[in-house]
Design a binder for these strands. Structure first.
Lengths: 236, 236
DNA sequence: CGCCGGTTTGACATACTTCAAGAGAAGTGG
DNA sequence: CCACTTCTCTTGAAGTATGTCAAACCGGCG
């Protein structure tokens, strides 16, 4: 499964030191975390947790992207979360996990066994507070996505998706109104994220292209040509 | 707006004492909360917060039901949360609110001005911990609903809705497999909750009735005749 | 080169929406 | 208590966005 002989790294050099669960920790607290942490790496496509698994550990994403999803009996799949560096995987207080967590790209996690982490959590307000903030952010994102899933048209969904990506990833900007973006996923994964089929995703993306809102560098690299048009296309 | 001369009530007699934000508080902590709390009442249909409002206070629902929703420019509306007694309204650390909060039935809130509440929150682990639990529950519910919105058919949405209601409300049971349920909202509100139109809601409800899964006492009182059939109709 | 996963494109099917009308309930005022 | 209005809900007919099925294309990799 996971590649366990991953990079040892000091927390002080960690790329997510100031945005992850540990963001508010002082040096002492960090030292304690350092003692109970371990890294795990996953290849793109690997399962990190499957629905029903025991939540033996919780983790922060250090590098890469992962998805949170659920699949119905007949194969319909819905992504319910897109996890990027500094996002937290885990539900303190829950024994099991009710979704599938899958590495979308090659991913490195900073893991804590759940029990010791929970102990430290209740003893360390800085950790608890940061977890609360992260959870609240997730909740907000989930609710925004509910609006998208329930009420937006396919075209609006695509536009919102691209806009969301641009806000969550550092894009090598061209100019203010134009920028470049790398699609980190297949059309099918986008479809699962947006509650569409992959064919509809493809058609709508190309629709946006025909209308001069975006252009392709290659299939996975998109130039946003008119940010304003994109924003209006989102529907909100 | 709010009816401010609401019932004074001791926390010890409060119906949500053991399930709300204060659930883990001891007598001392409760006494402090008691000092900064106040009650507000809203009539069915009244706005509690509008999108963009300053979050001057946070609150627990004591009696009644409220909804969290967002409306797009052109009037499309999506409910993103259904708030029932003991649910918490408020986002510590946020200055403004990004959704509309509306009383669905006559509702009484237990309110705390945000600033003093936040101070107490950071000084009282019992409060912070409980808030984290409540937030996590909300997040889970939101994610379940994302699956519904993105992937379920109209019929499955209705079945899931009825099933969800039966789990969240105490229903006067008939027998194990049959029970009665009161719909707390109009077809239009259900539609906004499920990402459908009110006509589709009406049709699907009557479809379930024709198939003998449910029956009507009156338009708002439903008998679930076959819980098994209802569960399978939910799709998960 | 030839496979193979990912993507595009077309033709057709359908679930859901939209528009429209009417029937019940429920509230209001005389 | 009865007209009157106003919601709420139901039902029908027609339209449409999106899904389904199928074929072809494209780019990378063994």
């Amino acid at each position: 499964m996971a590649n366990l002989d991953a990079i040892p790294m000091r927390c002080s050099q960690c790329p997510i030191r100031h945005s992850a669960i540990c963001a508010l920790c002082d040096e002492d607290e960090l030292a304690k975390l350092e003692q109970i942490k371990s890294y795990r790496s996953f290849k793109a496509g690997q399962t990190i947790f499957a629905r029903g698994d025991d939540l033996t550990y919780v983790a922060s994403i250090v590098i890469g992207m992962a998805t949170l999803s659920r699949t119905l009996e007949d194969g319909r799949r819905q992504m319910v979360g897109l996890l990027m560096p500094s996002d937290f995987i885990g539900w303190p207080g829950r024994e099991q996990i009710d979704f599938d967590v899958t590495a979308m790209s090659d991913t490195t996690l900073c893991c804590f066994n759940r029990k010791p982490f929970e102990q430290m959590l209740s003893a360390t307000p800085h950790l608890a507070r940061r977890l609360a903030e992260l959870t609240l952010d997730e909740l907000d994102a989930a609710r925004d996505w509910m609006v998208l899933l329930g009420r937006k048209t396919a075209r609006e969904k695509i536009a919102t998706f691209i806009d969301m990506l641009s806000r969550r990833t550092k894009h090598p900007g061209l100019t203010a109104n134009r920028y470049q973006l790398t699609m980190p996923m297949t059309r099918e994964q986008m479809a699962d994220n947006l509650g569409l089929t992959l064919e509809t995703v493809s058609r709508q993306i190309n629709g946006l292209k025909k209308d001069g809102v975006i252009a392709f560098q290659d299939r996975r690299t998109v130039d946003v040509l008119d940010e304003g048009a994109l924003k209006t296309a989102t529907g909100d």
